[in-house]
Amino acid sequence: MPDKAFFSFMAPSLLAMILFIALPIGSVFLQSLFVEHSQVMKTVETCSPFGGCTDETIVDAEATQALAQAQPLGRFNGLGTYTDRNHLAFDDLGRARREADTFGEFLSAIMNLRFYRALVFTIAFTAIVTPFVLALGLVIALAVNMLPRMTKGPAIFVSLLPMIVTPLVGSLILAWIVDAEGILGATLQTLFKDPDLSLKASPTLTWIMLFIYGIWHATPFSFIVFYAGLQTVPRDTLEAAMIDGASRAQRIRYVVVPHLMPLVTFVLLIQLMDNFRVFEPIVGFSADANATSLSWIIYNDLRGGETTLFGSAAATSFLTLVGVIILLIPVLIRTWRDHNSKPA
């Protein structure tokens, strides 16, 4: 394709990507390097309906506004926000290393820092949910493939529901069911004869519940991709394998799975990205007492509290971006190699 045509076809996408992806990321990174100006404070008399009039400290609005207008971006903080206690916490890590007597103590000191706590959960979520989703999706695709033709359609439709419904709605629906007073929660209490059993009360059970939600939500995606792939398995190769005496399991292992490998890479890529930005289940299950994720602490900085911490949220966003890139490097290298080895 001639260069001019190539660029004119690519131009809209390139422009959109620069405007909506590259520039915002650059702006967020810039924001993460600044903190707010020092608030100029003064003591004045404040009168309220209760407690009469007292002397209180308030912010001197004019002086602070003057500072803000002189330097709109704020105070330059360099990489200070990245290394403060809310993020990589180098100071606290160093102190923990010096003061901890055992490795267990060091570990609990790390988990006390919110960024590492969120990082551990996010990585655990990604590492556990992704392989399960791949395996379950394949198994269900194989099973649905064996159904009589009439029932395939409805089966596929119902299977897709967990993925189609908005993640927040899906997690709320499951939260109501597993709640200690909900149908599943109460049944579990009866089953285990423990009236205090609550999936939302203990951190371990909360994590397991969130992992199960993640698998429930993402399996339809891998199911539908593998199911589509199964329709294109070359029948001749299958028959040849059967003539050679291969059993069912061997046929699946040596013919079907290798044929689906490119799809596996595709689903793996998408799942790694999706699971790394887990957020909705933590809100839906009100699980932030026991499990927080990187996306969740960004949301908490911006919307969760009384104050908005833009710089802190920007720094966490950028660190999340770096994390996703690191996670995807192996998959991207593999895809690049496959692409290069194909004939032009």
């Binding site: 903190v35 608030q39 105070r75 206690r85 911490l309």
Partner: peptide
């Protein structure tokens, strides 16, 4: 400590 970190960022 958490308060101090956030208060520093808010000025």
């Amino acid at each position: 400590a958490a308060y101090t970190t956030a208060a520093r960022e808010k000025g």
